[in-house]
Design a protein around this nucleic acid. Structure first.
Lengths: 357, 357
DNA sequence: CACTCACATGGATACGTTTTCATGCATCTC
DNA sequence: GAGATGCATGAAAACGTATCCATGTGAGTG
């Protein structure tokens, strides 16, 4: 009953050849047609499946790809993970998953575990900065960042980088000149074009007459915040820029606090879907009507954005594509390391924004 | 720069001991205090991390745990995955993830990959039946099912238990008398008490005067459907029981078709959060007001249920706990295999149900 | 002191694979 | 026909670890 799996040795014996030959046949090496056929037949008959364990040890790498996200409960990261999985599956690579909770410490721990596991390629939505990712790179890991860049010098390093070319077609309202040309990121990454997304949203709100626009940020939203500051200011009313940690409670507290401390604000830009959720909840709790009393734009297009009433106007970023492209990047060993990829965002106007009251 | 990692041999040499001793010290075997201290110091200094590759090969198992879910975009499975990850992390075990898309074929393929990878313990929200899971078990895998049971004889195995029970005492919310004890499943699994959840919801709707209640089911909802049939019938109006596949499009089509073909229905029970979403959307599209024209109860309490207007009345099942318990089960090798665990569900009344129009 | 017992220790082996290397055979070239 | 060339092939080494087993050392017991 406890049938042990057949090894390459069993196949070799049964086929009357050496193990080297079996290995070659199965890895596509050269072999005579006759031998190949025989080996294949025997392997199929024994239901032989090469053990990744042996192979991994031999070539000193697991081959799998690691995936680190802050929280799978966040629909966006679910989408991203699905993208990674889709690409990995088509490449036949296993994916080992970790959830960091947006905690650099947990993140570092998980990276350590992956290292130990022999995983040498990973995709990460980083929480920590150089403290975590320097060592990882030094250990020989190929890491592709998704959705964000590690904190350290990310802000000034990347917020200057708009899309390669296409911000022009999104100039909805006024004719503000497109941002300066993109400075390519220093690290391989797949990002959404936060900057254009935020700019477009801010312009849209401005066009509706809003002047006191708040930003609700969460961990890893540095680029979005920077883009927001750039788009609205200067001067930037700093009280209108508030932050939450990764939890839902914190997001709600931040949103609620914002509404209460600044009843004069007329629009809110939520930096992520959890924050958008919190904003809707907090507004309802305080009897603020959307969009009559306050307009709301949320980053991330999630399925439930349409369920709200009114349906939420969102900045959509292609979560699944981001994951898929990141996986492609990390799997592409041929040629030199590719640089950052920036995917377009899109403002989807639904019903949560109205003219300034 | 490309510093190769230190091996156990390096540590042994540097510490002036044999590799066996190092191995023992690190795995908690016996060693003299002096030696132990010395080895530990050297290991720390060399930043030695034992390679899981070598260990795995030696003991012929990866140690990690596999996790198979239908779709990470579904918030419920995200919660479940978070639970699994939390438990796995505290046990120091890596988790390798696969998304099946509710397709038995993909599922079987993923199981094969895990097998190959040396993963011998897994948690699955199964799509396929015995065709997939028989071989997996025969290959020596320890598998714990979560949220569902494999199709084969799950339906009659689990829903058949117990008499319909006197529906006379309509203690609506928390006072519902516990159903007859569930007959333990034949396989290790962690499930929500679907039966009670559905019964409670149906009674609640009945109490509001609803008589034509529809059920919107998706893949893997067999137990819920059976519970629904049991709770409403007989006779069961079969036109009021409709099914969708796993996709959002299919869910919407099913919901929309249901509303159009049976305009006389007054309440809908959605078997999952995707179906609930579809129901809300379809109702809105057809200008049906919730709850005035149609009452709605959704399985799964997801954060956005509260965002809808009106907020959705739901049957909450503890997704995170289900994942966590499943991971505990699959990690507990001590003692004999534990049986099925059934976690309670809870009807959370919000605003999506009203008296029959 | 002889003997035993417990225990710390290191050498050797096995895990299943890939890859290198040498061998043998057949074919080709001059 | 002799040498060179090409190719299929198998033996063996390596990957990093855990564990079996034999050895050595100390203490404890008679």
């Amino acid at each position: 009953m406890e049938a042990k799996r057949a090894t390459i040795k069993d196949v070799a014996e049964a086929a009357g050849v050496g193990v080297a030959t079996v290995s070659r046949v199965l890895s596509g090496g050269s072999a005579s047609p006759h031998t190949r056929e025989r080996v294949l037949a025997v392997a199929a008959q024994l239901d032989y499946r090469p053990s990744a364990l042996g192979r991994n040890l031999r070539q000193r790498r697991t081959g799998g790809i690691g995936l680190l996200v802050p929280d799978l409960t966040d629909t966006f990261f679910g989408q991203l993970a699905e993208g990674v999985l889709a690409c990995a599956r088509s490449a036949g690579e296993p994916v080992v998953l970790g959830s960091t909770g947006d905690d650099p410490e947990q993140e570092a721990e998980l990276v350590g575990m992956l290292l130990e596991q022999g995983v040498d390629r990973m995709i990460a939505v980083p929480s920590g900065g150089a403290d975590t990712w320097g060592p990882a790179a030094r250990a020989g890991m190929t890491v592709v960042f998704a959705d964000r860049l590690p904190a350290e010098r990310a802000a000034d390093g990347l917020t200057g980088g708009g899309p390669p070319g296409g911000a022009g077609d999104l100039m909805l309202l006024d004719g503000v000149p497109p941002p300066p040309p993109a400075r390519p990121a220093e690290v391989p990454a797949v990002l959404a074009d936060d900057r254009t997304g935020i700019r477009t949203a801010v312009r849209y709100l401005r066009g509706l007459g809003h002047r006191r626009i708040a930003f609700l940020g969460g961990p890893g939203h540095d680029r979005r915040v920077a883009a927001f500051r750039e788009a609205v200011g200067p001067p930037v009313d700093e009280d209108l820029v508030v932050f939450a940690t990764g939890s839902r409670d914190s997001a709600y507290a931040a949103a609620s606090g914002l509404f209460q401390s600044r009843p004069d604000l007329t629009a809110v830009l939520a930096g992520g879907n959890m924050l958008g959720e919190a904003a809707v909840l907090a507004a309802r709790e305080l009897d603020l009507r959307v969009p009559r009393d306050v307009s709301l734009v949320m980053y991330d297009d999630v399925p439930w954005a349409e369920l709200c009433s009114p349906p939420l106007t969102v900045i959509a970023q292609p979560g699944r594509d981001i994951g898929y492209r990141a996986a492609e990047l990390v799997l592409r060993t041929s040629g030199r390391r590719p640089r950052a990829v920036v995917l377009p965002t899109e403002l989807i106007v639904r019903g949560s924004c109205g003219p300034r009251r």
